[in-house]
Design a protein around this nucleic acid. Structure first.
Lengths: 210, 210
DNA sequence: GTAAAATACGAATAATTCGTCGCATTCGCC
DNA sequence: GGCGAATGCGACGAATTATTCGTATTTTAC
């Protein structure tokens, strides 16, 4: 296979004046609108530009391609979420298990709020997922958990912690994806509780080594 | 919203003569090839037809649209998998917990074998997922587990079992998705063991009622 | 052998798509 | 007020797409 030119996905140039800053903001807002009201399939530069009240040309001034817009939304989303999670995990005034439960609960609630956007972004994922910038985000999430598992799994090897971080990330992400806007508070709590029982139960009784 | 015309996704007409049966088979095989070698994004009726050594027109004789091909692949895949799982769960000569562990192990190994196709089908999912025929498959999987959980969670309400079936289906699916072709046997076993510990541990110590 | 049904073909069509380019307008600053 | 840089415009080119339809070929039934 020929060494494919990886598509750039970062901003083409940074907006300098206020009007262009606003323009970028408008585009992102419009992008969310198109993505959720229409669908990932109908996510089109023309549609986004029109909704934003901006011309396609202007859009391409700041975003090198369609994928870059999606990626930017994903970055912003992850920034919001990870800030919250990081705060919970770092709060050493509570024992690790409790922090884990709080994290699950908070995470699921966050996911419910952004359910529509998340679902659409997931559908569009194949478009931006392969970019190197996207990998960096995954890695960041992974590190977040791996560090925390140092507390939950005393004596575990780095490799063991990494495997667990992998698994927990996967599980939480998947369960988070099932939480839609029409889940009631009780539904979310139920799922969070079960998941909390499952994980903390596992950590408590974890076989010494295998 | 106008009552959208749902896209048909079933076969347009059944092949009758042997040559047409072969043609459909060729198309499906070619579809797998295109999906895995290329990608969901490049999955095109023209490309599939060319690879199958068949004309586009012939393709449309039997498949009403592109989505129908993808859906058919998904149906076949699920038929293979569910048959195996059903067999494991139904074998009452082993205790439920052991069956659960066997199921997880077998499932993950199955997933590894078909990893490429599965990943591509997942990417293409937005195209066929919303069809009513597709919902039926999900429901079938759900019933499979709900029934089994009657054994694992004696005394649990139907609703409780349904929630668990939901959760377990989600978790297994997600973990299965992480298993790629380059996972070693040891890797798969490790994941299966952890998942088995987690789930069966939970079932064993499940709080009486909440 | 022949007629009808089934099957196969593939060029043509109609829609969409992304991304660019040359030019017009506005801003920041002296 | 005026000048260069930043910004904004939107028609347009080039490419890809799904799907149809009129016609040609093959099979089946009698």
């Amino acid at each position: 296979m020929p060494p494919r030119a990886k598509p750039r996905i970062s901003l083409r140039k940074a907006p300098q004046q206020t009007r262009s800053t606003q323009l970028v903001a408008d585009i992102l807002e419009a992008a969310i609108h198109v993505l959720t009201r229409d669908s990932a399939r109908r996510f089109t530069t023309a549609r986004v530009a029109e909704r934003a009240g901006v011309s396609v040309g202007s859009l391409y001034q700041y975003f090198p391609n369609k994928e870059a817009i999606l990626f930017r939304l994903q970055v912003d989303e992850w920034a919001r979420t990870s800030a919250v999670l990081r705060g919970i995990l770092a709060d050493r005034t509570h024992p690790p298990e409790q922090r884990l439960r709080t994290l699950i609960n908070t995470f699921l609630r966050t996911e419910r709020e952004e359910a529509d956007l998340r679902a659409a972004l997931d559908d569009a994922a194949p478009l931006y997922r392969d970019a190197p910038e996207a990998r960096a985000i995954e890695a960041a999430g992974h590190r977040l958990f791996t560090a925390f598992f140092g507390e939950l799994m005393p004596g575990a090897s780095r490799r063991e912690r990494a495997v667990m971080a992998d698994l927990v990330t996967t599980i939480m992400g998947a369960v988070g994806d099932t939480v839609t806007a029409d889940h009631s508070d009780a539904d979310v709590t139920r799922k969070a509780t079960i998941l909390g029982d499952m994980l903390s139960g596992y950590f408590a009784r974890r076989p010494a080594r295998r």
